[in-house]
Amino acid sequence: MIEIPSPMGGSVWKTEVQVGEAVAVGKVLIILESMKMEIPIEATEAGTVKEIKVAEGDFVQEGDTVITIET
């Protein structure tokens, strides 16, 4: 299992996947909004989405786990 961290502080704008969904490397999992920019967070390994740890509108700090993937 791998943990996908947020690359920077920001608020969760959109969740692009659901628990149980199969994802490939590079698949956009979550889009943050920060510094008025859309910040896509992508899967770094292929697998299945195990847990989504954030809800839309949540503030996340740099390094916080946003999603876990079962590889």
């Binding site: 690359p7 920077m8 920060s34 510094m35 008025k36 920019m37 859309e38 910040i39």
Partner: peptide, 10 residues
Amino acid sequence: QSKVKGGTLF
């Protein structure tokens, strides 16, 4: 590079 962290300077 706006593709990484929106191009924000860290």
